[in-house]
């Protein structure tokens, strides 16, 4: 057997050794002992409980580290605003599946790390999929202060256990996200929002093949159609009479339902906007049925947090069960 040349070995070693001063500095800042509250764009800090006011608050680094349009990946620091990221990607006709608020009112200053920590997908989930599926690699600082790499830089990867998945939607309770590699995708060739009054949302779901989002408030259906113009046109021809419109303003709280249960939403919800085909209902009040877990699953959740953050350093006072 020949000895592999030094270059390969050097590259391998370099890969495993994080030398990025920004990351090292962030890790040092996080340290290994005191309670910390991570601060992002403060757009969703009302969710998942109230953070301990005595904890030290900390901001992750920001900025785009490396954008590779040909690979359709981008490495970005956690505190980078999503809108800033998308502005940079749009120069190459790309974006990510992270919600950036450009289509909808509010949340314009969400950060990449914040969006991932909360793990809520945009209303265009029918087309864009779940936020967690856009995350290829995460680097975070663990409770003991170590810098950890979860996942990998390529679009496909099953090397080891999937730490990325457990970090997305963990509300920052398992580690402090430092930077992340995201999968990018082409910007929609064409897209338009339509409004249909007194339409049957179920029929819209079954007929609108190009729909990225279908919203319903009990009387009006809004749909975003995306793709090739001809396909959008033929879709629109199948739908009830529609007019161009902006999407509705979304109430602040999210209820999680089975898609087919949406049509039975009654007055208990108050004003609502439901994501047809997905199951999210945006409401004015918190979900009365929210946060219920079976005892076994609750124990498993607790075990995860106990193991990753035994001293509850990260975001004390907040918890995924309250999200």
């Amino acid at each position: 057997m020949t000895t592999p040349d030094l270059t390969t070995q050097d590259l391998l070693r370099a890969r495993r050794t994080i030398q990025d001063p920004v990351l090292l500095e962030f890790a040092a800042e996080v340290g290994s002992s005191d309670p910390i509250v991570m601060v992002g764009g403060n757009t969703q800090s009302h969710l998942g409980g109230v953070a301990d006011p005595n904890a030290r608050s900390l901001r992750a680094p920001s900025g785009i580290v490396k954008y590779q349009p040909d690979e359709m990946t981008v490495c970005v620091r956690a505190a980078t605003p999503v809108s800033e990221l998308h502005a940079a990607l749009s120069e190459h006709g790309q974006r990510t599946s992270l919600p950036d608020g450009t289509n909808l009112q509010g949340a314009v200053s969400s950060t990449v790390g914040g969006v991932i920590a909360v793990g809520r997908s945009p209303v265009t989930r029918l087309k864009d999929g779940h936020v967690r599926d856009a995350v290829l690699q995460l680097r975070y600082v663990a409770a003991d202060g170590a810098l950890v790499t979860a996942g990998g830089p390529t679009v496909k990867n099953v090397s080891g256990f999937d730490l990325c998945r457990i970090m997305v939607g963990s509300l920052g309770t398992l580690g402090c996200i430092a930077d992340v590699i995201l999968r990018t995708r082409p910007i929609n060739r064409h897209e338009r929002w339509l409004k249909m009054v007194d339409a049957d949302p179920k029929a819209v779901l079954n007929n609108a093949k190009t729909a990225a989002a279908i919203l319903w408030d009990g009387t009006v259906v809004w749909a975003q159609l995306v793709g090739h113009q001809a396909d959008i046109e033929s879709d629109q021809a199948r739908l009830p009479t529609s007019s161009s419109a902006l999407p509705p303003k979304l109430p602040p709280f999210r209820w999680s339902r089975r898609p087919k249960d949406l049509y039975q939403i009654g007055s208990e919800a108050g004003r609502f906007v439901a994501e047809i085909g997905v199951g999210v209902v945006h409401c004015e009040q918190p979900d009365p049925q929210g946060g219920k877990l079976s005892a076994n699953v609750e124990a498993l959740n607790r075990r995860v947090r106990d193991l990753f953050d035994p001293h509850r350093r990260f975001n004390p006072g907040r918890s995924v069960e309250l999200l």
């Binding site: 999937d162 730490l163 998945r165 999210v280």
Partner: peptide, 17 residues
């Protein structure tokens, strides 16, 4: 089966284990 199940994404962690 609901859109945003409560808790950590244990499902996602389990897939590929």
């Amino acid at each position: 089966l609901d859109s945003e199940p409560t808790g950590y994404d244990l499902r996602g962690a389990f897939v590929g284990s």
